[in-house]
Design a binder for these strands. Structure first.
Length: 346
DNA sequence: AAGACGGGGAT
DNA sequence: ATCCCAGTCTT
């Protein structure tokens, strides 16, 4: 009997959330479709990425790669180009690999079984749950940062969200709240509430549809939740680049190492000693990565001999391109900014 | 279980 | 300067 009443309470909160969503949910382009391909793309783009930041990328990506066949048959470089500036570039590489998986393993049809979806490169528990619920009506919670924040506050639950079991723990809570046949909308509702009302800082509790039920709010303990113990320590990283130019061309190569900016283009990292007297100056670039304070020492090397330029490019397997052509390559943000500063106004 | 992986906006 | 965002993959 006790269990029954508790479940009824959970369900009541879920229905409140859903009612709020129908009136106050955000109007986003991918909310108008149940096409698993489009939902997949949008879920990957918006991993660790704000809606405002990725919205244009989503639109451009879908326009250029409207279906899984188009994506699978594209060059990796072009997929990367459409990812330029989004960060976490392995997402784009995995996206392309997964498109080929769908062609080869699933006959070119986006899989509908949850376990199959989970097999796709770059698709983890969250993304698989989002696709399964939104596109295929499966009653599965797409537990993300919003779920952790909202649920930990509503139940004043101090379960450590950085713990490995947090996904399953909060998933169980969420499923209890989920109205039948509304898993997709429920998941979207939780994201919108977390984004617009139950924000990390200064949540707008007075407008929250769940404030009557919210334990943390009624206890005045909102700032205590969610509990997150994982601590990250910033480290320092220094890189050296040489911007080697001849007339209107400069040298680039593609990063292959499994480190930051894998598969993105960059400048030479070392030059022959005889070039050193041609260095016209150093520019220092400071850039903050997620857990790194990055300093780039950037030297500009202006060559006046086409033979030296060509020989160096050939021996070290660099490519020579113009500034105009560089728009067709994906550069790390700090290098992109440098290029822009060099050529702006021309 | 812990680290690595980008970039940008809010506070 | 710090936090954290529609997380996933690799030790």
């Amino acid at each position: 009997m006790k269990t029954k009443n508790q479940n009824a309470d959970f369900l009541h909160v879920g229905e409140k959330l859903l009612a709020w969503y129908k009136n106050h949910g955000r109007d986003l382009p991918f909310r108008k479709t149940n096409d698993p391909y489009k939902i997949w793309i949008c879920e990957i783009i918006f991993q660790q990425t704000r809606i405002e930041q990725g919205l244009n990328h989503y639109r451009n990506f879908i326009q250029r790669f409207p279906d899984v066949q188009t994506l699978a048959h594209a060059e990796t470089d072009e997929v990367l180009l459409y990812w330029k500036g989004l960060g976490y570039y392995s997402r784009a590489l995995n996206l392309h690999k997964a498109a080929l998986q769908i062609i080869n393993d699933f006959n070119g049809v986006f899989p509908s079984a949850h376990q199959d979806i989970l097999q796709l490169k770059g698709v983890g528990k969250y993304t698989a749950a989002a696709i399964s619920s939104i596109c295929f009506g499966k009653k599965i919670a797409a537990v993300d940062g919003n779920f952790y924040r909202v649920l930990s506050r509503v139940f004043a639950d101090d379960f450590d969200v950085s713990h490995a079991k947090a996904f399953d723990y909060f998933s169980e809570l969420a499923v209890k709240m989920m109205p039948e046949k509304e898993a997709g909308h429920f998941n979207e509702a939780m994201m919108d509430l977390g984004s617009e009302i139950c924000k990390p800082k200064n949540p707008v509790c007075i407008y929250c549809p769940l404030n009557e039920a919210c334990l943390a709010f009624n206890l005045g303990k909102i700032p205590l939740f969610p509990v997150k113990t994982k601590k990250v320590k910033p480290t320092d990283l220094e890189l050296t680049y040489y911007f080697v130019e001849y007339k209107d061309q400069f040298l680039i190569k593609q990063r292959q190492v499994d480190f930051i900016w894998k598969k993105l283009y960059e400048f030479p990292t070392e030059i022959p000693v005889v070039f050193e007297k041609l260095i016209s100056g150093q520019k220092k670039i400071s850039h903050k990565l997620t857990h790194k304070n990055l300093t780039i020492h950037l030297y500009k090397v202006t060559l006046h001999s086409k033979k030296m330029f060509d020989d160096f490019a050939t021996q070290e397997q660099f490519s020579a391109i113009t500034y105009e052509d560089s728009h067709q390559k994906s550069f790390p943000k700090p290098l992109e900014n440098y290029l822009f500063s060099l050529f702006e106004g021309e």
